[in-house]
């Protein structure tokens, strides 16, 4: 009975496994690929694979199972990319330092950002999170907090400035 309840084949258990591990697994994958959409794809494939083999995986092993599957998928994709690249007539370098789109965000750097955000004064952090996580416009934030739009911009500006100084040399 207890065994059945804990089976990953049970949709509720499956969902709670997802809720527990998905965010960290996505983060893990992001730092491997340096690409958000690739991380998202592999995340989904990994959990689909977990469902397909839910009978073989116990709840105790599920974490290492997920990371192993995800890592294998990552390696396969990279291997495939290498094959493609070998056949390309003019190999193109996919990363340059000049174009910021290809800037690599290392895990340490993201941790610095997270720390910097967490360390912002309450009022600045509130504006920062409303803007970036809740995707609100400055005018909307101004209304919600009953302050002027200029005041919102000031907090945001200062938030970025203080994050810049905390992050230090890059």
């Amino acid at each position: 009975m207890a065994k059945e309840l804990n089976s990953i084949c049970d949709p509720n258990t499956y969902e709670s496994v997802f809720n527990e591990h998905a965010k960290n697994l996505k983060r893990f994958l992001y730092f491997k690929f340096n690409d958000l959409s690739a991380a998202e794809d592999v995340l989904q494939e990994t959990f689909i694979k977990l469902w397909d083999s839910c009978k073989e995986v116990t709840l105790e092993k599920v974490k290492s199972y997920l990371y192993t599957i995800a890592n294998n998928k990552f390696l396969n994709i990279k291997k495939h990319e290498k094959v493609i690249r070998a056949y390309e007539e003019y190999p193109v370098s996919d990363r340059t330092n000049e174009s910021p789109e290809f800037l690599i965000i290392e895990e340490e750097f993201l941790e610095k950002i997270e720390k910097a955000i967490a360390g912002l004064p309450e009022k600045q952090r509130e504006v920062f999170l409303l803007s970036r996580i809740e995707k609100m416009k400055y005018s909307q934030i101004a209304e919600q907090l009953s302050i002027s739009k200029i005041a919102v911009e000031k907090r945001m500006h200062n938030a970025l400035k203080s994050m810049r100084s905390k992050i230090g040399n890059i």
Partner: peptide
């Protein structure tokens, strides 16, 4: 630095 922060 800011450009990298933006991406981050």
């Amino acid at each position: 630095a800011y450009k990298k922060m933006q991406k981050g």
